[in-house]
Amino acid sequence: MPSRRRTLLKVIILGDSGVGKTSLMNQYVNKKFSNQYKATIGADFLTKEVQFEDRLFTLQIWDTAGQERFQSLGVAFYRGADCCVLVYDVNVMKSFDNLNNWREEFLIQASPSDPENFPFVVIGNKIDVDGGSSRVVSEKKARAWCASKGNIPYFETSAKEGINVEEAFQLIAKNALKSGEEEEMYLPDTIDVANGSQQRSTGCEC
């Protein structure tokens, strides 16, 4: 039974509009890239099965809209996330500055049990643009921010060229998996007819 047990990981992708969240996801899941920009409306969902250390698990990727008008998606969207991916465009300073807001917003909405250690991954995307000459956010700066937020793993990617995308998601999966490990104990009660109260018994399910 345990060998067949599969894990489902909910991964949320956040970041300003146009930084390439959907493209990253498409490159990762479908190995496709389109130059045409089309805004995500609300959210989009993709799944990908991944093998990791002999375990099969499914990534349920929640690709959200970056526009501000969609930012109040609310608790519902963030609830129960196993990993959060923060994406910015290395060519747009504002998108990097906003990472902090995205992170805060996520922690408020999702209110994970251990916010300090919640697995984030930061991705600086579009490193291919103009051969890197239009870049405004240095890797050093990005890494410094990541370090200041509890050593968030950092990747620089190009969704267009497929650079580092696989690697980034591998780590996303790995970290999500790690955070899912400490599972909640399921301890059902047994009816105590005599006292009219319930006794907690040891969980003995499955």
């Binding site: 489902l8 909910k10 959210a43 969902f45 993709l46 799944t47 099965e49 499914t58 349920q60």
Partner: peptide, 10 residues
């Protein structure tokens, strides 16, 4: 179920 994760999310 796992293949339907996206549908479930919807």
């Amino acid at each position: 179920e796992h293949k339907l994760a996206g549908f479930s999310a919807t």
